[in-house]
Simulated scan of single mutants.
Amino acid sequence: MREIVFDTETTGTNPASGDRVVEIGCVELVNRVETGRTYHAYFNPERAMPSEAEAVHGLSTIFLSDKPLFGHKAEELLDFIGDAPLIAHNATFDFGFLNAELARCGRDPVCLSRMICTLVLARSRHPGAKHSLDALCTRFGVDRSQRVKHGALLDAQLLAQVYVELTGGRQIGLGLMVDAGPQGTSASRGSTVQRTVRPPRPHGPSVEELARHAQFVSKLKDPLWLKLQAIPAAS
Rank of each mutant, 00 (worst) to 15 (best):
P200M: 09
T185C: 13
V162I: 14
S206A: 09
K221E: 14
S132Q: 07
I81A: 02
S60G: 03
L77G: 08
L29K: 05
K149D: 02
N14E: 13
H131W: 10
P199L: 13
Q146G: 05
E209Y: 03
S124L: 12
V148T: 15
F63K: 13
Q161D: 14
V142D: 09
R32D: 14
L176V: 12
L136E: 06
R139Q: 09
G204N: 10
T192A: 12
P232K: 07
L166T: 04
A135S: 12
A122C: 08
M115G: 00
K227F: 06
V120S: 13
T92M: 11
A230S: 15
F97V: 00
V22C: 02
P205K: 02
L98Y: 01
L210N: 04
V207M: 12
A41W: 01
S235W: 07
T196I: 15
V197T: 12
Q194H: 14
G36C: 06
A135P: 01
A55E: 02
N44H: 08
L102E: 03
A16T: 11
M1H: 10
R107S: 06
T61R: 04
A48F: 09
A135M: 07
I81C: 04
G184Y: 10
H203M: 13
L226G: 00
A84K: 07
K149T: 11
F43Y: 02
C111D: 15
G25C: 11
R114A: 05
S188F: 15
D108P: 10
E46G: 01
A156M: 08
H40P: 02
E9W: 00
L136M: 15
G168W: 07
K149Q: 10
L154S: 02
A122M: 08
T10D: 09
A180F: 15
E52P: 00
R37L: 10
A233Y: 07
H126I: 05
L98F: 03
G184L: 09
A103I: 05
Y39T: 05
D19H: 14
H131T: 12
R189D: 10
A16S: 13
A129W: 04
F93T: 04
R107V: 05
F43H: 00
P127H: 05
Y39I: 07
L154R: 09
M49Q: 02
L133A: 03
G168R: 11
C111T: 12
D79A: 15
G58M: 01
C26L: 11
T11M: 02
S206Y: 11
M115E: 08
G204M: 12
W225R: 08
I172D: 09
A48S: 14
S17W: 10
Q229E: 15
D143Y: 06
E23C: 01
P109S: 05
F93D: 03
L121W: 07
S124H: 12
V142I: 15
E76M: 08
E101P: 01
V110S: 04
E52K: 03
L112P: 02
E101V: 01
G36M: 07
L121I: 07
L86T: 07
F95D: 00
H57R: 01
V33P: 00
D7N: 11
E34C: 11
G106K: 11
A152T: 08
T196P: 01
Q215S: 14
M1K: 09
